[in-house]
Simulated scan of single mutants.
Amino acid sequence: MAKVKTFINGQVCVHGQALNQSVYVDEQTGLIIQQPGQRPSDFVDLNGRFLAPAYLELQTNGCAGIHFTTFKDPQSYREGLRKVSCHLVTKGVGAFYVTLPTVHREVFAKALPYLRPQTFGGGADLLGCHCEGPWLNPAKKGAHDDKLMLIPAETSTEDVFGGTESMQAIKLITLAPELEGSQALIERLSQRENVVVCIGHSNADFETGLAALGAGARVLTHVFNAMDPLHHRSPGLAGLIASPQAPYFSLIGDGIHLHPAVLTMAFRSQPRKCILITDSIEMAGLPDGIYPGHAQIPHPQKKEGNRVTIDGTETLIGSCSSIDECVRNLSKWSGCSLPEAVLCATENIVNMLGDVSRGVIEPGRRADFVVMDDQGQVLQTWIKGVQVYNRS
């Protein structure tokens, strides 16, 4: 007879609401089940705290001193991934996608074979890679190296990433839809390669954005950042979030990349399409100071709190926020409930990806949970019904 673990006396975050109900987990499979016929063998008393699906980290370039473009050898790269995995569960993350920015083809070729979906004992699962580039617009390069940016019409995925082994790791690609050959590439990636196409680092207009969505693009990458600003007569890509064909869209919720009022406006326009990301870099979780560059940023980097710039400039490189912090920020700034904010780091993401294995607390899905207090502070993280983090 299967052993059943029951989570009781909690506020369970389901579809943006807090429900007073018990959650049952088959300890053998690590899946959520219906209320069993036999008496559960193990109880977890939540004492009125929130139980939510474990967060998904859709866009991270690194954290805890690890940047994913730094590849010395297979063993150290795997150890770096493990370190990140174990760090992320302390932030309530159950699964993550590694982001590789615009880098030399040699870096893609070295790193991608090690970024295929995999698990780490006691840590968050790696679900694959999000390639942010190299088909981006140099005019909206942000912290990317414009000398490495390519034109879709002049290159192929094989040229850039390598063969089958590399492509098996790639689950999302961000590109600029106005570049020559982008429409054909979007169709190929979304229809034949089963890759989620995101659009960003672009100065495309609204109409070009609509055409990209028609070709199969599904997501806007960090809306308002690295794209033309929203204008009342020329809405650009940002205007797509309020259109009848609204895509999913990601927002960096650190209060640096976006003003809280802008974050709130975007969230309120389409709460079920809004996705929170950190766009974190390797200095997340490290002290403030000056840090060396790497394969993406060949310049010293300056960390001040969650803000990181190329030293001596105002160019933002990425964020040092964590996804739980972004969830708390959204709830505080927009006035939405904590369960509503949780949607943007869980259910909305798996709905965009078509992933029915996780991200929602319902029978048949993985028992990946985060336990929080009423302020959204992470207290515990559970992976497949096993506690992997406990803030004592």
Rank of each mutant, 00 (worst) to 15 (best):
L353E: 07
P177D: 09
C131A: 15
F68R: 01
Q34D: 15
V223W: 00
G318C: 08
F120V: 05
D311I: 00
H144E: 07
A341I: 04
Y389N: 02
K273V: 03
I173P: 00
K303C: 09
P152Q: 09
H144F: 09
N390R: 14
D373F: 11
Q59I: 07
Q380L: 02
L353R: 06
R358M: 05
E106I: 08
T313I: 11
R218Q: 13
H87S: 14
G128H: 07
S337R: 12
G385I: 03
L237E: 04
M149S: 08
G209D: 05
P40A: 11
P101A: 15
E79W: 05
V195W: 00
L230M: 14
E362W: 01
G364S: 10
G289F: 10
L175S: 01
E282Q: 14
Y291V: 08
K147V: 05
V223Q: 00
S182G: 07
K273A: 07
K332I: 12
Q168M: 13
A238R: 00
P101M: 08
Q35T: 14
G312P: 13
L46A: 11
I252W: 00
K91H: 15
P36Y: 09
C86R: 15
A341M: 06
I277F: 09
P363H: 11
P117K: 06
F50I: 06
Q375M: 11
G92M: 04
P363K: 06
D205Y: 02
T60Y: 06
T60C: 15
G359F: 03
N9L: 06
L230N: 07
C336M: 09
L46I: 06
Q11H: 12
D374V: 09
N20P: 00
Y389V: 02
G48V: 10
D311S: 15
L136M: 10
G62D: 02
P298I: 05
V360Q: 12
C86Q: 15
G121M: 05
P287A: 14
E27R: 15
R188E: 13
K83V: 04
S182F: 01
Y24W: 13
C129T: 06
I241M: 13
K302I: 00
L237F: 10
V262R: 00
D26V: 05
C86V: 08
N137Q: 10
L31A: 11
L150T: 03
G253S: 11
H130Y: 15
G62S: 08
T90G: 11
A54P: 01
V342K: 04
E362Y: 01
P300T: 10
A261D: 13
V378T: 10
I252Y: 01
R188P: 00
R78H: 14
V195N: 01
A18L: 12
E362H: 03
S357G: 11
P244T: 11
N9M: 08
V196R: 04
N348F: 03
E154H: 11
A238I: 02
D368A: 08
G48M: 09
